[in-house]
Simulated assay, not measured.
Amino acid sequence: MMVGFDRVVNRFYSFIWKKQTYNKVLWSELDSNLLGEIYCRLTSPTDQTRFRAVCKSWLAVHPVSNTTSLAFLPWFIGFSLSIASAHNRLDFILYEPSSRLDATSVHTVSLTKLSIPCPPAWNEINAEVVNNWLFVCTRRTYRSSFYRRNFVLFSPFTKQVIKLPQSDHPLPFKFRRTFSTDPNSPDCVFLLLDAACPNSSTIRIMTYRNIDKEWTATQFERVDEFIPCSCVPIYIQGKFYIVSPFGQVASYDILNGRFRFENIAIDNHLAQNYSSLNYLVFELNGDLMLIYYLGSLKKNNHNIQAKPCIKRFDWSIKVWIPVISLGDQSLFVGKNFWSVQ
Rank of each mutant, 00 (worst) to 15 (best):
S185E: 11
C188Q: 02
V189T: 11
F190V: 05
L193P: 00
L193G: 01
L193W: 00
D194H: 04
D194V: 04
A195H: 00
S200E: 10
S200A: 12
I203H: 02
I205L: 09
M206E: 11
M206F: 05
D212G: 02
K213H: 14
K213P: 01
W215Q: 01
W215A: 03
T216V: 15
T218G: 03
T218Q: 12
T218F: 07
E225Y: 10
F226R: 01
F226A: 01
S230Q: 09
C231W: 00
C231D: 07
V232P: 01
P233I: 08
P233G: 08
P233F: 07
Y235P: 02
I236R: 06
G238T: 09
G238P: 05
F240E: 03
F240Q: 05
Y241G: 01
V243I: 11
S244Y: 03
P245V: 06
P245D: 10
F246W: 07
G247P: 00
Q248P: 00
A250Q: 01
S251A: 14
S251P: 00
Y252P: 02
D253L: 03
D253W: 04
I254G: 06
I254E: 03
I254M: 06
N256G: 04
G257A: 10
G257R: 09
G257P: 07
R258C: 15
F259A: 04
F259R: 05
R260V: 13
I264P: 02
I264R: 06
I264N: 11
A265I: 11
I266M: 07
H269E: 15
L270T: 03
Q272R: 13
Q272A: 15
Q272V: 15
N273D: 13
Y274A: 13
S275W: 12
S275K: 12
S276P: 02
N278V: 08
N278H: 11
N278L: 09
Y279L: 09
L280F: 13
V281M: 03
V281P: 00
E283V: 07
E283N: 09
N285Y: 07
G286L: 04
L288G: 01
M289D: 02
M289G: 00
I291L: 12
Y293P: 01
Y293A: 04
L294I: 13
G295R: 09
G295F: 06
L297N: 15
K298P: 00
N300M: 11
N300H: 13
H302A: 12
N303M: 15
N303K: 15
K307G: 10
P308T: 05
C309R: 11
K318W: 05
V319S: 06
W320K: 04
